[in-house]
Deep mutational scan, measured.
Amino acid sequence: MTEYKLVVVGAGGVGKSALTIQLIQNHFVDEYDPTIEDSYRKQVVIDGETCLLDILDTAGQEEYSAMRDQYMRTGEGFLCVFAINNTKSFEDIHHYREQIKRVKDSEDVPMVLVGNKCDLPSRTVDTKQAQDLARSYGIPFIETSAKTRQGVDDAFYTLVREIRKHKEKMSKDGKKKKKKSKTKCVIM
């Protein structure tokens, strides 16, 4: 069974824990209790493949930012979460993405942009803004509501699919490099 290491990042209060708990335990946590770091595991079937999701729910508070490099190193894919009623959390996505790329030393890291709290009427981040940002990053965008469960499975499952595509691409690139290195030079 394939294991996928997913990391949920975003500013404090955007609903990272609520999304994760909704996926794992099928219930909505409405009281806000700032996370330092929590880890969850769940076995699911995605596109006919049974897999184990190892999900790291991270601290959004700035005082825990020193811990970010460590979990970013171990993560295979990242859910970059903002709240649709919090423009600052949307603007912060850029910083999370840049930090992930720096730590992973790669421009090509599996990510999904997630606009959470889409059940709320007080939207300050337009869907088109988020779609445009995701398009500019070359990553999928999904709106979710941890409260109603809308888009929750889709967000995590899409990230797994992005990781699969990335692994497939990397193995193809690896095979191309191996083929090239088999060419021999004969000096007579």
Rank of each mutant, 00 (worst) to 15 (best):
K128A: 04
S136H: 14
R102S: 06
S65D: 03
A18T: 05
F156T: 04
A59L: 00
I187K: 10
Q129G: 14
A59E: 01
V29C: 09
Q25R: 04
L53T: 07
R41C: 10
D30A: 10
V112C: 08
L159V: 06
S106G: 12
L113M: 10
E63Y: 06
D57C: 00
I100R: 02
Q70A: 12
S39K: 03
L53D: 03
R68H: 02
P34D: 02
L113E: 02
A59V: 00
T87R: 10
L79H: 01
Y157S: 11
K178N: 10
D173T: 07
C51A: 11
Y40P: 00
V114T: 03
S122M: 08
E76S: 04
V9N: 04
P121F: 09
D33R: 00
I100F: 04
E62K: 04
T158A: 14
K5E: 14
E62D: 06
I139V: 07
V7C: 11
G138S: 09
V152K: 14
V125M: 10
Q22W: 09
Y4W: 06
I36L: 11
E3N: 14
V114H: 02
K184R: 08
K16T: 03
R123T: 11
F90V: 12
R68G: 02
E62L: 03
F90R: 15
Y157V: 14
F28I: 03
V109C: 07
Q61G: 06
L53Y: 13
G174E: 11
C51P: 13
T183Y: 15
R149N: 07
K42M: 12
M72L: 01
Q129Y: 13
D132E: 06
Y71R: 00
L53C: 11
R161M: 04
I55V: 08
G115H: 08
K179R: 06
H27F: 11
V114S: 02
G60H: 00
K101C: 15
I163F: 05
S17H: 00
H27M: 15
G60D: 00
T50M: 13
S106P: 04
Y64H: 00
A66Y: 00
K165S: 10
L19T: 13
R135C: 10
R135T: 09
F78D: 05
L120C: 10
R102N: 14
M111H: 03
I142F: 08
L53F: 11
S65A: 12
M72E: 01
M111A: 03
T124G: 09
G75E: 02
L6M: 09
V109R: 03
G151L: 13
T127G: 06
C51F: 09
E37I: 01
K167E: 09
R149Y: 13
L52N: 15
L120D: 15
S122F: 09
T124W: 07
H94K: 15
T35Y: 00
S65M: 09
T35M: 00
T74G: 11
F82K: 02
A134K: 02
K178C: 10
I93S: 06
M67T: 01
H94F: 15
R149G: 10
V125G: 11
D119P: 07
D92Q: 04
V14C: 06
D57I: 00
S106A: 10
A66V: 09
E162Y: 11
M67P: 02
L133H: 14
C80M: 08
D173A: 10
Q43L: 08
E37W: 00
D173L: 14
T20G: 03
G10L: 01
P34L: 02
Q25F: 02
I187V: 11
G151K: 04
M72F: 01
I163V: 05
K167Y: 06
G10K: 01
C80L: 12
A130L: 12
A59P: 00
Y4K: 15
N26F: 07
E98F: 03
G12L: 04
A130C: 11
R41F: 13
Q43T: 12
V9L: 05
H95D: 12
K169Q: 11
D108F: 08
R102F: 04
E91T: 15
L113C: 05
Y64K: 00
R161S: 14
Q25P: 04
G60A: 00
S181E: 13
K180R: 09
T58R: 00
H94Y: 05
I24K: 07
K169L: 06
K5T: 06
F28W: 09
Y4P: 15
F82W: 07
K104F: 09
R123N: 14
R41D: 08
V186W: 13
C80T: 03
L19S: 14
R161Q: 15
V186H: 15
E76L: 04
Y137H: 06
I21S: 15
E98R: 12
I24L: 10
C51D: 13
I21T: 15
A11D: 08
D119G: 05
S17K: 01
M67S: 00
L79I: 08
E98H: 04
I24Y: 04
I46H: 13
P121T: 11
V112Y: 12
E107K: 14
H94T: 04
L133N: 14
A11E: 13
T124H: 09
A66P: 12
L159G: 04
K117C: 10
H94W: 13
Y40D: 00
E37L: 00
D126L: 08
I163R: 05
T158K: 09
I55R: 00
A130M: 12
D33Q: 00
N26H: 10
S136L: 12
V114E: 01
S106H: 13
T58A: 03
S65C: 04
V109Q: 03
V112I: 06
V14M: 11
I55L: 08
G174I: 08
E37N: 01
V8A: 09
K165G: 12
A66S: 07
R102Q: 14
S39A: 15
K117F: 13
V125C: 10
I187G: 14
K128V: 05
V44S: 12
K167L: 09
M72G: 01
I93N: 03
D30P: 07
L79P: 02
Q99K: 02
T127V: 09
D30E: 13
K101G: 08
R68D: 01
G115S: 08
R135I: 14
H27Y: 12
V125R: 08
E49S: 12
L159N: 03
I21H: 15
C80Q: 04
T50C: 07
F90M: 15
V103D: 03
I139Y: 08
C118P: 14
Q43P: 10
V8H: 06
E3L: 08
G138D: 05
H166M: 10
E76C: 06
K117N: 13
V29Y: 05
F156S: 02
L6I: 13
H95P: 15
E162R: 08
D108M: 11
E107F: 04
K16Y: 02
L159T: 05
Y71L: 00
R164T: 15
D108P: 04
Y40L: 01
V8D: 03
V9T: 11
I36Q: 01
E37P: 02
M111Q: 02
T127L: 10
S17F: 00
K176M: 11
I139C: 09
D119Q: 12
G138H: 05
V160E: 12
P34A: 07
D173H: 06
F28Y: 08
Y96Q: 03
D173N: 12
G12W: 14
V186K: 04
E63M: 03
R102I: 07
C118I: 10
G10Q: 02
E162N: 11
K176V: 07
D108Y: 07
R135E: 09
S122D: 12
G48E: 10
L53R: 03
E49W: 05
V160T: 10
D173W: 12
Q25V: 13
R149A: 10
V7Y: 04
M188H: 15
D38Q: 02
R161V: 13
Q131E: 11
R164M: 10
K169W: 03
G77Q: 01
S181G: 10
D132F: 06
R97L: 15
T158D: 04
S122A: 09
I46Y: 13
Y4H: 09
M188Q: 12
D57M: 00
D47E: 12
T183G: 14
Y4V: 13
A11I: 13
Q150K: 03
N116M: 15
D154T: 07
P34G: 02
S65V: 05
Y71F: 03
L120Q: 06
Y40T: 00
V45D: 13
L113Y: 11
P121V: 08
I93E: 02
D47S: 10
G174H: 03
G115F: 07
D153T: 07
K172S: 11
K165Y: 12
